[in-house]
């Protein structure tokens, strides 16, 4: 939902970042307001996942230039856990397994750290169980997964549902979902998309990172951005994604070749 007067949540300005001295992001500009759903598309290696990790504060990436403003605060100054506590969420493409750490306890500690930041009282184990059982419905998840170790032995679809469950508990203001659709069969995709739609509201915003139109058939974006060579090359409405589906990315190469001939390898 686009409302020009909605508050600005995330403002990315000329963001450059590198990993092991290899520049990946080369000047990303993106503004996200409350209520909006954005999709970032692009080929492998275009910098989509790097953008999500830099925003969440992954230590392997170094920001070399630019700024990210999150609701008036300098996001890049904050530790990853502080970013999460003030409402930034990253749904991982490949959620890691953490043996020995109970999923339920993990969810409770995470939820309470976000609640503490918002000034809400801490939930004890009983109150939290009530909350988590209510939120499980968002992703139609079996409560048995709460008793297991975090993501351990979960199938690809179960891991992604666990990500959306975390999102439902943390109630982020900006949720970045990194290829949440990858590795999902059509039923799991529908459940995950349904969860995201339920959680999207006028106060928060969603940034979907995806290769495929099929996710955007289920979650309708307000804006679609095409990323290539570490920057956003074109921005449009939902029809841009459909156009990509039809024409592929060849035009991207042409446009890049026009912008910076030296960076394009023509296959």
């Amino acid at each position: 939902m686009i409302r020009p007067d909605a508050p600005l949540l995330l403002d990315i300005c000329d963001l450059h970042a590198s990993v092991e001295d290899q520049p990946i992001l080369k000047g990303v500009n993106l503004s996200i307001r409350a209520g909006e759903i954005h999709a970032v598309m692009g080929r492998n290696g275009s910098g989509k996942s790097t953008l999500s990790k830099v925003l969440a504060g992954h230590p392997a990436y170094t920001v070399t230039a630019g700024s990210v403003n999150y609701r008036g605060a300098d996001l890049l100054e904050l530790d990853p856990e502080q970013r999460a506590r003030i409402g930034l969420f990253l749904g991982f493409q490949y959620p890691v397994e953490i043996p020995g750490v109970s999923n339920l306890e993990f969810l409770r500690v995470a939820t309470n750290s976000r609640r503490a930041e918002r000034g809400d009282e801490e939930l004890d184990t009983f109150a939290f169980e009530d909350l988590v059982h209510e939120r499980l419905k968002v992703v139609q998840m079996d409560p048995a997964f709460l008793g297991r170790s975090v993501n351990e032995g979960f199938s690809g679809g179960e891991k992604k549902r666990n990500e959306i469950l975390q999102m439902a508990l943390l109630e982020p203001l900006v949720a970045i979902l990194d290829e949440t659709d990858s590795g999902l069969d059509i039923d799991a995709l529908r459940i995950v998309a349904d969860g995201v739609n339920q959680l999207a509201g006028p106060e928060n915003a969603t940034l979907l990172i995806t290769h495929y139109q099929r996710l955007l058939d289920l979650i309708t974006p307000d804006y679609v951005h095409v990323m290539a060579a570490g920057r956003i090359l074109r921005t449009g409405g939902k029809e841009l994604a459909l156009e990509l589906e039809r024409t592929g990315y060849d035009w991207v190469d042409l446009e890049l070749a026009r912008l910076e001939p030296e960076t394009v390898e023509v296959a």
């Binding site: 993990f106 500690v109 750290s113």
Partner: peptide
């Protein structure tokens, strides 16, 4: 692993608590 730590941190769990959770889990 750095990825496990980052995962816990990106859910609002501080670095120390993240390490401690993983070590306690290992020793449970």
């Amino acid at each position: 692993s750095a990825d496990q730590l980052f995962y816990l941190q990106s859910r609002g769990i501080g670095f120390e608590e993240a390490v401690s959770m993983m070590v306690s889990g290992f020793c449970r």
